[in-house]
C-alpha cells in the first residue's frame, strides 16, 4: 500500500496526467452543454500529450537541438526527440478534430436552436 503511494509520489508527471485525464473525462460524461463536452475532450487530449512529453524529459538534459555539429553527440545530454515529434502530430490532428466537433455543434445549433443536450433530446422526440 505505502509502496504504491510512494511510487506515485516519485512520478509527479503521471499523477498530473491522471488528474487532468479523469477531470476532462468527467466533464465529458456529466455536463449537458456540447461545447463544455468539447472542452473536456480537449483536456483529455492535452493530458495524454503532457504524459508523452514528460516521458521524453531527462535529468540535466537540454532541448534536442545539437549544440556543436563537429563533436560526437552524447545522447544523454539531449532530451528524447521522438515523443516530441509524435506529440507535434497529435496536437495538430487534435485541434483539427476539435474544429470538426465545433462545426458539428454549429450545425446542431442551427437545426435545434440549442446546445443543451436535454433540450435537443426533447426536440428530437
Amino acid at each position: 500500500m505505502f509502496d504504491a503511494i510512494f511510487a506515485v509520489l516519485q512520478r509527479p508527471n503521471f499523477l498530473t496526467f491522471v488528474i487532468i485525464f479523469l477531470w476532462g473525462f468527467y466533464i465529458m460524461v456529466t455536463r449537458y452543454n456540447l461545447v463544455k463536452k468539447l472542452i473536456g475532450m480537449y483536456l483529455v487530449q492535452t493530458s495524454v500529450i503532457f504524459f508523452l512529453v514528460s516521458i521524453s524529459a531527462k535529468e540535466g538534459a537540454t532541448v534536442p537541438i545539437l549544440l556543436s555539429i563537429t563533436e560526437p553527440v552524447q545522447a544523454a545530454n539531449y532530451a528524447n526527440p521522438l515523443p516530441h515529434v509524435l506529440t507535434l502530430t497529435a496536437i495538430v490532428v487534435g485541434v483539427a478534430t476539435l474544429g470538426v466537433g465545433l462545426a458539428l455543434c454549429g450545425a446542431i445549433y442551427r437545426k435545434y436552436g440549442s446546445l443543451d443536450e436535454q433540450k435537443i433530446l426533447e426536440k428530437l422526440e
Binding site: A57, K58, L66, P81, L82
Partner: peptide
C-alpha cells in the same frame, strides 16, 4: 486503477527509461 500502474513506469527525468534507450540515441547521434 490508473495510479496503481505507476509502479511499472520509469521515474520522471530518468535518463535510462526505456523510451530513451532503444532507438532514440541513434537518432540523436
Amino acid at each position: 486503477l490508473l495510479l496503481y500502474a505507476a509502479k511499472d513506469l520509469p521515474g520522471f527525468g530518468d535518463p535510462n527509461s526505456p523510451a530513451s534507450l532503444h532507438i532514440s540515441p541513434t537518432y540523436l547521434e
